[in-house]
């Protein structure tokens, strides 16, 4: 085990005790939602932060999986596990079909291609009323149940969501720290140089696009069986933009950044509710300020804070040492 896994283990331990420290169940709900966004942001960061390929349509994969399992389990009475499996399969299959032509586009053209795809899917959610329930949404989706065990309480669901988030984080971390992770970062800076070294750039881009869509699909399935209701507005262009913002604000090419970005942008609106009406203004202003003053994102900001705290501790330790050293000697 190395430092990276130790960090994740510490985080998992902290996540495990948090529910016992919360003043009320309201925060549990917010934490579950931020866990879902963590899964999405970590997946999107693999695509954007590491491989440098933009997607402004990730909400579509989130929604495709949520709707698929919602329709199959809610409307057609499939078992939940089968609905989720179908949701993941459909979402990733669509991602593959989209990736092949779309990833030939570059930069802002790729952003537009994925944006267009996201909007098309969003319109289908709205218009295919017989299937999706249209703008008013789809109700009657069952709670998550596995082998007869129903996860009906928020606390149980918290562990399901964060368990999945931590597992997917671990997999992402293993990918990043491998020859594939290096190849993706190489593609980010110079596709030319990467291909000279034997990296099949198009294949790798497709792989990471589909993988990040899979992450979004896991988030979508977990969302559907938590809220038990899905409606198009959850999977709109605004959600795709929010995900990109989480990745960039958290820190490009930083998995911890994705976690921080997801937590921060889920909690911020909740905190701002107190100043109703003005919340949106303050939200916008904080977003702008963060981007202006933390060029490396929240991850780098946290790292700097940590560094400052550590050096402060060291200095305090050094000041205290002569006396302590004397007594030990």
């Amino acid at each position: 085990m190395d430092g990276h896994n130790a960090g994740l283990l510490a985080f998992a331990a902290a996540a495990a005790v948090v529910p016992f420290l919360l003043p009320n169940d309201y925060y549990l709900t917010v934490l579950i939602v931020s866990g879902l966004y963590t899964i999405l942001a970590v997946g999107l960061n693999l695509l954007m932060g590491y491989a440098g390929q933009a997607s402004l349509g990730h909400a579509a994969f989130y929604g495709l999986s949520a709707y698929t399992t919602g329709i199959l389990t809610g409307t057609h009475g499939w078992p939940v596990w089968a609905g989720i499996a179908a949701g993941l399969a459909l979402s990733t299959a669509v991602a593959y079909l989209i990736a092949v032509p779309t990833l030939k586009l570059r930069g802002n053209y790729l952003a537009m291609g994925t944006l267009g795809f996201g909007i098309i899917v969003y319109i289908v959610f709205n218009e295919a009323t017989e299937l999706t329930g249209g703008p008013s949404g789809l109700t009657g989706i069952p709670k998550l149940n596995v082998a007869g065990k129903v996860f009906s309480s928020d606390r149980e669901y918290y562990y399901v969501v964060w368990g999945a988030a931590i597992l997917l984080f671990l997999l992402a971390q293993n990918l990043v720290r491998s020859r594939m992770g290096r190849a993706l970062r190489a593609i980010h800076t110079s596709e030319t140089a990467a291909s000279v070294l034997g990296v099949d750039t198009q294949r790798y881009k497709i792989f990471v696009f589909v993988l990040s869509a899979f992450y979004a699909a896991v988030g979508g399935a977990l969302y559907a069986h938590y809220v038990t209701f899905v409606s198009p507005s959850t999977f709109s262009f605004g959600t795709s933009v929010l995900l990109v913002t989480m990745v960039v604000l958290g820190g490009m090419a930083s998995l911890w950044g994705a976690v921080l970005g997801a937590l921060f942008l889920t909690f911020l609106p909740e905190w701002l509710r107190a100043i109703e009406n003005f919340d949106i203004l303050v939200y916008g202003a904080i977003l702008i300020a963060c981007m202006m003053f933390l060029p490396g994102g929240l991850a780098e900001g946290a790292e700097r804070l940590w560094g400052a705290a550590a050096s402060l501790l060291r200095r305090a330790g050094a000041a205290g040492r002569p006396a302590g050293g004397g007594s030990a000697g």
């Binding site: 020859r179 290096r182 190849a183 970062r185 190489a186 980010h188 800076t189 110079s190 030319t192 140089a193 990467a194 070294l197 034997g198 990296v199 090419a253």
Partner: peptide, 19 residues
């Protein structure tokens, strides 16, 4: 030059051995 500026020196060379 087409250096991978988002990596360390060692990581650049590791990428060289991709295949």
């Amino acid at each position: 030059l087409e250096i991978f500026t988002n990596m360390t020196v060692l990581e650049n060379v590791l990428t060289g051995s991709h295949l």
